[in-house]
Simulated assay, not measured.
Amino acid sequence: MIESCSKRRMLLAVTFLGGLTSLVLVVESHWTNGSKKTYPETLLRNNSVLSSCWLKEEYEIVEPCHLCNAFEINSLSVPACLLTHYKEVINCNTSGRVQRSCDRVAWIEERNFWIFEGLMLVLGSVSITAVFTRQKILDHRVLRRLQRQLASGV
Rank of each mutant, 00 (worst) to 15 (best):
S4I: 10
S4D: 13
C5G: 11
R9F: 14
R9A: 12
R9L: 14
M10N: 08
L11H: 15
L11K: 15
L11E: 14
A13H: 10
A13M: 15
T15Y: 04
F16E: 08
L17Y: 09
G18D: 02
G18T: 02
G19Y: 11
G19R: 11
L20E: 06
L20Y: 04
L25H: 05
L25V: 07
V27M: 07
W31M: 15
T32C: 13
T32L: 14
G34W: 15
G34Y: 14
K37F: 07
P40R: 15
L44N: 07
L44K: 08
N46V: 12
N46I: 08
N46S: 12
V49W: 12
S51D: 10
W54K: 10
L55N: 15
E58S: 09
E60I: 08
I61P: 02
V62P: 04
E63T: 03
P64D: 14
L67E: 00
L67Y: 03
C68T: 01
N69Y: 04
A70K: 03
F71L: 10
I73Y: 01
N74T: 10
L76Q: 08
S77Q: 12
P79A: 07
L82I: 02
L82H: 00
T84R: 00
H85A: 00
H85V: 05
H85E: 03
Y86D: 01
Y86K: 00
K87Y: 05
E88M: 14
V89G: 01
N91V: 05
N93V: 06
R100D: 03
C102V: 02
R104W: 09
V105K: 07
W107I: 10
I108C: 01
E109N: 10
R111D: 01
N112T: 01
F113G: 00
W114M: 09
E117G: 04
G118T: 03
L119P: 04
L121S: 10
L123I: 10
G124H: 03
S127Y: 10
I128P: 02
V131E: 07
K136F: 03
I137P: 03
I137A: 04
H140K: 09
R141P: 01
V142K: 14
V142I: 13
Q147M: 11
Q147W: 06
Q149A: 13
L150K: 09
S152L: 15
V154R: 15
V154E: 13
